[in-house]
Amino acid sequence: MSIFTRRGFLGASIALAISATALSTAALAADDYPNKPITMLVGYGAGGQTDLIARAAAQVMSEQVGVPINVVNKPGAGGAVAARELQQADPDGYTIMFHSNTVVNSAPFIMDRVDFKPDDFEYAGMITAYQVGMATQKDAPYNNITEFVAWAKENPGFSYGALSPEARLYMEEIAKKNDLDVNIVPLQSGSEMINALLGKQVVLAFSGGIHYRYTDELKSISALTSFRHPSAPDVPTIEEEGYPIAMDSRTVVMLPKDTPRAILDTLSEALSAAQTAENFNKVAAASDIPVMYLDVDAATKEMNDTYTKNKAIIEGASAN
């Protein structure tokens, strides 16, 4: 049924070509991929950081593969709603998803009803990394976690801003290890987090990277990633300071399971062009988002590795 409705949109000649390929195997269909517009799902609302990166990437990829790539926003449950829809799509490369890889590598351990595994999808590459970190006011008397812990012991009952379960986990682990008395203030968005920091409501907050825009007022004291942030190369990672709980997140192009490898390679190659595309770099730089391209194999490995690591971290934390 869906083939018929989709056919309705195409001209007669293309419809003939498709009916020929529809009969043949998926591998054969990959030969002339792509020959019609591609739908790119984004699991966040229009206008957010990831959405803008997705749109810029879609533009580059569309120029590379020669067909339009339409961005469709399907917000809900941190991307799980869109990912579930992707799971049910045909593995023909015409429905793809651009999202943070957290939807696969940490959402399953945080949300009861999400049970994605890395094997449930194929990955056509990763393009940017999130500079997740701990942010505070510029004039705060600590520059890393160790100094912060020392300060916090003198100031019990301090307030920490958290906008996600992961954000709570980081502070709970630090507090547990050092026996700190912390009040975790729930925040609902990046802008609320900035507000709480600028208004000095909290002494420290978890940030998805947006705080790098406020270089005059805010600073990082820790990178919650396994690598140091390009925007603040002098700030140590949380792992360097003895807490092996860094959880990396990157934007990834996901496809339904069993999509032919040739299609993944086509998309991966198109995505790699974003590294040098002027407009894409402009959008990424405007939001301090580092471009770190990974190809199909590297992306799949990254997904598997972070899945295993995050599972151990999150389940280990909740077991205590």
Binding site: G47, L52, S191, L198, R213, D216, K282, A286
Partner: peptide
């Protein structure tokens, strides 16, 4: 004044401003 979006519209505009070379905030 601060670069903080106070409404849905402002959050959408922040993206548009940055794309057009104007980073909202005191600077």
């Amino acid at each position: 004044a601060l670069g903080i979006p106070g409404s849905v519209i402002a959050a959408l505009l922040i993206a548009a401003f940055i794309l057009h070379g104007l980073t909202p905030g005191p600077l």
